[in-house]
Design a protein around this nucleic acid. Structure first.
Length: 280
RNA sequence: AGUGGCUGUCCCU
């Protein structure tokens, strides 16, 4: 079972649903009945290819057949609504999981809806779901906090963002590299580079290593202020430690272009290509 | 111990 599901999942992730189905077909012919994991994997695979009808067919086969959709199956459907920008429908399905007592929405399920509400600018609704998690005894993890902190920043609710961040001590999840990067990015976009640098220091002190994303945000912050030389200093420091990526180059190329220093922008563009990075 | 679901950076929207 494990091996078959693993193989099917690999094909799904490679967007090779045809292979997934033919492998499964061979096993079914020899008497194997697909389980919940197999069917859920197929649903996920179809959805990632945008094949909603096929996904629905899998889901209906499940509800008719021997294996039942579980919390992960529902979460994948909820995630699909969220990706379509329909967080209301997502929330409804989450409610239905409770009402029909199908299975309890878990941590990841809540996280997905919270993230989606935040993206839709419904930060207060996200916060109420956050409290609901506590009252239903569902754990919260660092992803929950990261989504909410970003949502608070997006809604310009700085007080909420710092309250949530300050809450992240001992029994609660500790801030990770994403948490700090969200805050560094937000501070940079507000033009508060000094605060961003201060946070970077705290981050290092607490043993969280800044990565490429953290540094990209910082470089972007400098570029937004036209301080391209400072951005370049970070870039040079990144080479050999966390390595630069396409976005690092995009940020700098954009920075030079904004300053109308097109030649330097082109030099970086060519450097990027010579490093084997593909411009997007 | 081993199979399926969630978070951060550029541009555009």
């Amino acid at each position: 079972d494990y091996t078959l599901n693993l193989v099917i999942n690999c094909f799904c992730q490679l967007n090779l649903m045809g292979f997934s189905l033919s492998v499964l077909g061979k096993f079914v012919k020899s008497g194997y009945a697909p389980d919940t994991v197999t069917m859920t994997t197929l649903i996920k695979g179809f959805l990632s290819e945008g094949k909603v009808d096929e996904a629905r067919e899998c889901y209906e086969k499940m509800t008719r057949g021997g294996c039942k959709p579980d919390a992960i199956t529902y979460t994948i459907l909820i995630n699909e609504f969220c990706k379509e920008g329909n967080s209301t429908a997502a929330l409804q399905l989450l409610r239905r999981m409770y009402k029909d007592a199908i299975c309890e929405p878990d941590l990841v399920c809540y996280n997905i809806v919270i993230e989606s509400l935040c993206k839709d600018g419904l930060f207060d609704d996200a916060l109420s779901l956050f409290s609901e998690m506590v009252s239903k005894g569902v754990n919260q993890n660092v992803v929950t906090y990261n989504s909410l902190i970003r949502g608070a920043c997006r809604a310009s609710q700085w007080k909420e963002a710092s309250r949530l961040f300050n809450e992240m001590v001992d029994p609660k999840p500790s801030p990770d590299v994403c948490t700090f990067s969200v805050l560094v990015d937000m501070l940079c976009k507000e033009g508060k580079i000094a605060n961003a640098l201060g946070l970077l220091k705290i981050m290092v002190q607490r043993g969280v290593k800044p990565d490429r994303v953290t540094y990209n945000s910082l470089m972007n912050g400098y570029c937004l202020r036209g301080e391209i030389d400072e951005a370049m200093r970070i870039f040079d420091m990144m080479v050999g430690s966390c390595e630069t990526d396409v976005l690092s180059y995009n940020i700098l190329v954009n920075g030079y272009c904004k300053l109308e220093r097109i030649n330097e922008a082109f030099t970086l563009f060519e450097e990027m290509i010579s490093k084997g990075l593909i411009p997007n």
